[in-house]
Design a protein around this nucleic acid. Structure first.
Lengths: 150, 150
DNA sequence: CTATATTAAGATAAAATACTCTTTAATATT
DNA sequence: AATATTAAAGAGTATTTTATCTTAATATAG
């Protein structure tokens, strides 16, 4: 699987935050309830995003977390790198360290093209875009489907 | 990371087997030496490929493993499915179970296009093709680079 | 100042993945 | 029949990922 579970939780929470109006802090409890993710685990994940300065947090009553920048200025990639690190996709599909421009394996061209596509998408898509389609509201849907599965 | 370590070991060994001439059994020891993978661990991995009938094995002197079919008739995908299973790529990049044709998330089109590309490549590329470029010989290279890293 | 709300941090546990070691079974050679 | 060679099977260990629980730190309200 390309992204870790942890990373997907971070993405969902970030998108949900982006979809909320205004600039006020949202409690992690509220996020974890809406996303059906364990409160404590989500706390850990969001701590990481806070460390990376993608989120801003505030303790005490009326505290919580919020995006540190406008949603249009935080990318999918920002979140992925913060949680899963830079190397989400290996250079070579076979993991051959020798594979590269000079001595490509037979998969090299196809693989690196796809790799670039994925990375470009991640760099291009912002949380604002991800939060945009209120119509389909996948996050709301998530709740019901997830609930059924458990 | 898309594929597990175990799966990449299986792929490397399969490609190496495909690159060897003839129809005779090759010992796992020989493969593990060439690939610098632990003999015991590679044994486990190859047992799985044997169970899936991608490899054929033979015990005793002059025993070993070999491809169960011509290298042109075993795909990258065959090996991946045998080791990592069918679900190497999630439906939705955000892992939203509600996401689909009916209610796509904003990433849906791009993501499923890329997903299809990756799966198509895996289905299309055979071990024969992967073993073909003797020139670049990434497997030989592997040995030296890998040795340096350790 | 005290009680309460909230994130941060740390310790622990459970599960999955990666890897190792030992024994057993099959086959061949002598 | 004895011995050597080899994969299969099973048990065990280590590491990473995922998750939980507890305590601390910080802020607010009264």
């Amino acid at each position: 699987m390309l992204l870790s579970n942890t990373c997907i939780y971070g993405l969902r929470a970030s998108v949900l935050l982006a979809s909320k109006e205004g600039d006020k802090f949202v409690t992690i409890r509220e996020l974890s309830d809406e996303l059906h993710i364990s409160f404590h685990f989500l706390t850990k994940v969001l701590q990481q995003l806070t460390k990376s300065e993608l989120l801003q947090s505030y303790k005490g009553p009326n505290g919580g977390v919020k995006l540190a920048r406008p949603a249009s200025q935080i990318t999918f990639m920002d979140v992925v790198i913060s949680i899963d690190g830079e190397n989400i996709i290996k250079e070579c599909a076979l993991g051959l360290p020798g594979c590269g421009e000079l001595k490509p394996c037979p998969l090299h061209d196809q693989w690196s093209a796809m790799k670039e596509n994925i990375l470009r998408m991640m760099r291009d898509v912002s949380l604002k875009q991800l939060a945009a389609n209120k119509n389909s509201d996948p996050l709301k849907q998530l709740a019901s489907v997830h609930a059924l599965k458990k």
